[in-house]
Design a protein around this nucleic acid. Structure first.
Lengths: 212, 212, 212, 212
DNA sequence: CATGAATGAGCCTTCATTCAT
DNA sequence: TATGAATGAAGGCTCATTCAT
């Protein structure tokens, strides 16, 4: 019935990436347990058996998917941690723009959903995400805010909570997009959310002296 | 043939509730697909067969769990929607305190995680949550904010985004608790988050005239 | 199409035995790897799933099958080891008759084939069989023969080899039955083999003085 | 464009033999079903695909392995069948020495294990082994023994059982080596077994007149 | 009503076999 | 010829669901 595409494509080097990409989509849609290898293989354009040429188990694919989203972001966090000592407002605007850009352009939103959803089933994954990425980023931002407090730029208050306040709307907007937009909810415009949020928050965050 | 003390048997009318409660815990930990009926039954203190006396399928239990968390909150949302026209600051502080209390005292956090995680597998659930609860609450808050803007109390800006900004840190703090605290992350103190956030945000939200 | 036997039989206590019995037959015919759980279940008269109510894995079933054949024979070996100090000829005739009877009446032949065939795949099983059964039995017989040598009843020679000589024809006859009889070979009559062998061997084994 | 020294490539004519040799080792260790073509190919030093240039299926390899061990032994059996009519003792000693030598020097022991283990899965193989080798050898020996009985050299008794008695210890010693020695059992010295056995057995076998 | 043994469809994983290169 | 990536049927195992008791 089906004249068929060529059966063999012989592209060993490309396969793992294709599979991980397909797996990301399926895991992010279905969650780990409900994701079927058949579907991952089909979306990657290979047979079920081929997946096992590159990954030992379904779990290993999952780890690869989650890990793939960590590595490229660690550098960004480090850069942020070593940020220039200029006025906090500039730093926060820069960070927000960067994070917003990453979340818009990459599948980080889906991965985030996976990490949250499977944290109890794969605690090490949650741990790695926390230790290597989330906690680092939060700590770096809290550190910058604490430094600004020491300079008299920022009002008293828990700097870690300030950091949380700063990124929370972005994360929620992403989860909103993943969760409710597909069933008809009005989407949030991420850049608009971020800029309105930053300006509002800064206004309440900065001391009068710092509002140059 | 008196066999002694009467066995203490919970009334059958309580069973469905106990099952739903147990199911909530298991679904919230494992997600829908990875949750096992064996475990739900065990935690509810009944046999696996008994579960099927009250629910037709695993999916129905899931719907009951999610639905159970919606009903009691709808009233609160309606009350909020009909809120008194006093100064916005008072309203927001009240709302925040209420939501914070609910999230601390009820398993709403776990249900939220479930809804987010299973939205693609159960779109109608996401739809119900959105239409009956989340969107209502967001709309009510946005309405109150828009009204305050009309009164000149609040600066210009998208009121729906303002509403998002307002509740986002709370939601993220809850997901943080569910996701990263079990693997060793420092928890956030929810009341502290909420009060610091409200005060910071109000400061940037209100016009100078409204900061009496 | 099928009016069908009753689906549920509710005989928890009987099941493991029935399954092990069916598994013995299938493993002994096919070997471990070629045996299919479907067939074991079918022959046991249960569904595939039911097997897993009583055994964790296929391997565990295999171990149960092999183990089942060890236990009841250990006692016999111990009895032999503590044998009466009468003339060796009587002892050997008794032992031979006993072993012959066991091999005729029990599936020991099939288990033996399994142990030999899977020794490399399941070394612990081979080890248990050796340590607990085969080596004990051989040692006990060798001991009895050595004692008889000390009494001047038996000619010089390695008593362990004498023991091997004694039982070998029986074992080979059993393997013959399992291997070649099903494809048309003439069977050996086990009792005849054993009695002719014992008499022949004793004649060459005993010293002239002992041939009363 | 001289790339240097010529690659040392085994001639293609040798390949089938190398594959069969590797297959013999793997089949003998694992049994037919548990043997993997990957491993056979690797041990033969060829790719998995190359195996299929010489053999159609795994089964065909198996048949080749088993067949290979038959052919060279058939001649020996024929020679034995046509044996000189000298004293039986000499003949038996010669036969035993010959068989012992073959079993020590060739992998016949492993093949024997395979034939026994897979007889039910491959009845034709068992049949061929029986018809062409085992039954012939046994018949030849039984014939020689019957002739000796006719000459008054050997006591009455079933000559086929006498033949079985004669070779059984050797076979069992081989299976012992394959099965229990790898898990720590004390090995049997095959020549010692054979010579002690022959002398013991002859003593009980021969009539007084023949014990010159 | 309640139990839990039993069922069987479904999924992950393996591996003999194929075929483009 | 030779390779080894790719295939897909098959098998071990799980678990939602059923039903005799």
């Amino acid at each position: 019935m089906d004249i068929g595409a060529p059966k063999f494509r012989r592209r060993k080097a490309d396969r793992p990436d294709e599979i991980v990409k397909a797996a990301l989509a399926v895991f992010s849609e279905k969650g780990f347990a409900a994701a079927k290898l058949d579907e991952i293989a089909r979306r990657a354009g290979v047979s079920k058996g081929a997946v096992y040429l590159y990954f030992e188990t379904k779990e290993e694919i999952f780890r690869a998917v989650v890990g793939l989203a960590i590595a490229p972001n660690i550098a960004a966090v480090k850069a942020m941690a070593a940020a220039h000592p200029g006025p906090l407002a500039d730093l926060l605007r820069g960070v927000a723009r960067h994070i917003g850009g990453v979340i818009e352009a990459t599948p980080l939103g889906g991965v985030l959903k996976m990490v949250v959803g499977e944290a109890r089933n794969f605690p090490e994954i949650a741990r790695v995400w926390h230790d290597e990425l989330v906690s680092q980023a939060l700590g770096a931002m809290a550190g910058a805010i604490a430094a600004a407090q020491a300079r008299g730029e920022v009002k008293p208050g828990d700097p870690r909570i300030y950091a949380l306040q700063l990124i929370a709307p972005l994360l929620v907007a992403v989860l909103w997009r993943e969760t409710f937009v597909p069933v008809g909810a009005a989407p949030f415009d991420l850049p608009a959310v971020m800029s309105q949020h930053i300006e509002t928050l800064l206004c309440g965050l900065l001391t009068e002296g710092a509002r140059a």
